[in-house]
Design a protein around this nucleic acid. Structure first.
Lengths: 210, 210
DNA sequence: ATTTGTCGAGTGAAAAATGAAGGATATATT
DNA sequence: AATATATCCTTCATTTTTCACTCGACAAAT
């Protein structure tokens, strides 16, 4: 499983630079220099700059979806709430472990390109499916479908916010310890919100019965 | 107030293309072609591609901050909750009216460049200050400062989510009518959340007294 | 007549991609 | 074990493409 060190070095350098300057804002020379390899190596391993991007992103999402699927399997017997809670925890954990790529991909995905559309159908659709199913299982059939959509958007927003507003947090979250602490606390904050919407949707149900 | 049509055409074309392909992913030729003007016009009006960017973004933020300040002045006598509610409404409204630029700027702001840092100190700092003050006034001194920070991040996340996950919504929100409807409904969803956190923070206070 | 705006051609720099050659390492052959 | 061979990796030099920006001429408006 131990890959070629150069190849790995390139990916690492690319992740950092793409994160800082974006895909188009980074040149292959920059990447090569940062990785301390020759420019041509990049063509050799990935054919092109685009190839490098695709390799990195594909890897990221393959792993990401595996984690999600694993969690869903392992939590099959739990309550909907516990299941969703585990899922959220897994997602935030993964994103935290792949911080730079997460930020970069999140940003790049809001573009309009062939590549983005491809990623959307192959990976994002799945992620969305899993998350939506788990979330809607929790909500049940109480709320209006329209309102549920908005709540779902709110949930998705919470899962990406730290990786878009990372500039707001870089001063506070530093080092491995505080990074793990962040995961714990942030998942807790989302959990509070979940408890609230479940509670208030039960209120609605109760009112409907009376 | 009626500006040169060419200049406006360029800005409009640039907004669209920057939104779709990003700043570095768009060439001045692309912009010129889409705006049906000669390439040289862009240098003529804005000196450089960077100048065009700065012009657009500066305009955007000047207007944005004015709206915010206006709202804050007009709502001075209201309760903290109503004040924050108005502010949120104004913000979402403005972003919705400048949809493409909002999405673009939001994305570009997560980069690491001199320009971003400049925008941060001149505009974002102010926005943050206003929002934070209004939000913290509402929360009072009940909650732990740490937890308040997380809630504030959650709020900020809600204000940007629709402009990052816009791909998720472009099928549902089309046309002016549904756009206005969106503003109304989305602000409502945020308001529900605000009610919740205020309510639960009062719970904590009550428990502390007993 | 002077300012203001438009246009096409052109320049130089930057960046991506290519291709051939050399070196290292592993595998096979005697 | 020693040599030959094939495969993988790295490097340098070069080509091709893309792109931002300039220049000078021309037209329109004031």
């Amino acid at each position: 499983m131990k890959q070629n060190p150069s190849k790995q070095k390139v990916i690492k350098a690319a992740s950092t630079l793409f994160f800082q300057k974006g895909f188009h804002g980074t040149s292959v020379r920059d990447i090569a220099e940062r990785a301390s390899v020759n420019v041509s190596s990049i063509s050799y391993y990935f054919n092109s700059k685009q190839g490098l991007l695709e390799y990195a992103v594909t890897n990221y999402y393959e792993d990401y979806l595996s984690s999600i699927e694993k969690t869903l399997n392992e939590t099959n017997l739990l309550t909907p709430m516990d299941k969703l809670h585990s899922l959220i925890s897994t997602i935030i954990q993964y994103k935290q472990n792949n911080f730079q790529l997460t930020c970069f991909i999140q940003r790049e995905l809001s573009l309009d390109s062939v590549f983005v559309r491809e990623m959307t159908v192959t990976y994002l659709a799945k992620e969305n499916f899993y998350l939506k199913k788990t979330f809607f299982d929790l909500l049940g059939k109480r709320l209006k479908s329209d309102y549920k959509q908005y709540l779902f958007m709110q949930l998705k927003g919470m899962l990406i916010t730290p990786y878009i507003l990372h500039n707001d947090w870089k001063n506070q979250v530093v080092g491995d310890y505080s990074r793990q602490l962040f995961v714990k606390k942030y998942v807790r904050v989302i959990k509070d919100w979940l408890d609230f919407i479940v509670m208030s949707s039960e209120d609605i149900k109760r009112k409907a019965v009376n």
